[in-house]
């Protein structure tokens, strides 16, 4: 963890994004310290995914600033943006594995795409990374469609860490998994992030997962960050919204929006 005066690894200020008339992000402020693991919580449609898509450059914000290592990424040129992308890994909610490629090519996709490795060496590297996530080298020869949900998540994690990024994003890493497999994936995430010394940003609904993988947590509600604090305090943070969400309570300041 860095001291309070250090430049945050990721800094967002006043980030706004609307899709048509729907204001999804309404001035998001967020600091993520270098080497820390931040978990962003929030209900469906609260803007969690859009927040990380803005950092990743998949969505362009309407207003605001996003800095990585003190550099405003929204003002970067194409080459600098690509160079930044080389330092980032991402695990998508549904894995987003390329079903036209075998597992080993999925794992080493970035290394192969940038000609940082030969195809022969990529197989060895894939076996190495697959071992880190608890999969046998033989899995590398399979197609993603032949894998179970848990194995797909492990392969997606392997792909996210294969190029040794220094920032990794996890989008709902345990969604769709049974509790034991969810705990296994969380354990792998923590191990891999620590081993790389990377900064991690995760979004999740799963409180057990948030407590396991997060050092810090932030809660987004109606497009704004309403709370930031230690992940260990989730459920007894003193913030009524966070505690209602973390404890899954029906009554509280957060009201489900029903379409009439």
């Amino acid at each position: 963890m860095t001291g309070p005066a250090a430049t945050p690894k990721i800094r967002m200020r006043g980030v706004r994004k609307a899709f048509g008339s729907k204001q999804v992000l309404d001035g998001v402020d967020l600091d993520v310290g270098a080497g820390s693991s931040m978990v962003i919580l929030g209900g469906s449609g609260s803007g969690k995914s859009v927040t990380i898509k803005c950092i990743l450059g998949l969505v362009t914000p309407d207003a605001g600033e996003i800095e990585v290592d003190g550099v405003n990424v929204l003002k970067l040129g194409r080459r600098d943006r690509e160079a930044l992308g080389d330092r980032i890994g991402m695990l998508f909610q549904n894995g987003a594995l390329f079903d036209s490629l075998p597992v080993w090519e999925n794992v080493c996709f970035k290394l192969l795409a940038q000609n940082r490795i030969t195809r022969a060496k990529a197989r060895d590297r894939a076996a190495e990374v697959l071992a880190q996530v608890g999969l046998a080298a033989s899995v590398g020869e399979l197609s993603p469609a032949e894998l179970s949900g848990g194995m797909q998540k492990r392969v997606a994690l392997a792909r996210a860490i294969a190029a040794q990024p220094d920032i990794i994003f996890f989008d709902e890493p345990t969604t769709g998994l049974d509790p034991i497999m969810g705990a296994v994936i969380d354990g792998l995430i923590v191990d891999c992030v620590k081993k790389l010394g990377a900064t991690a940003v995760s979004i999740t609904h799963d409180m057990a997962s948030a407590r396991r993988i997060g050092d810090e947590a932030a809660m987004i509600y109606k497009g704004r960050m309403v709370w930031t604090g230690p992940a260990a305090t989730l459920g007894h943070s003193g913030n009524a919204m966070v505690d209602q969400f973390a404890n899954g309570e029906r009554e509280g300041p957060i009201q489900m929006e029903l379409r009439r």
Partner: peptide
């Protein structure tokens, strides 16, 4: 690929 985020995944894999 679009609706399963594979195109976004390409972008995050520097492609």
């Amino acid at each position: 690929m679009r609706v399963t985020d594979q195109i976004d995944a390409l972008t995050t894999l520097s492609t």
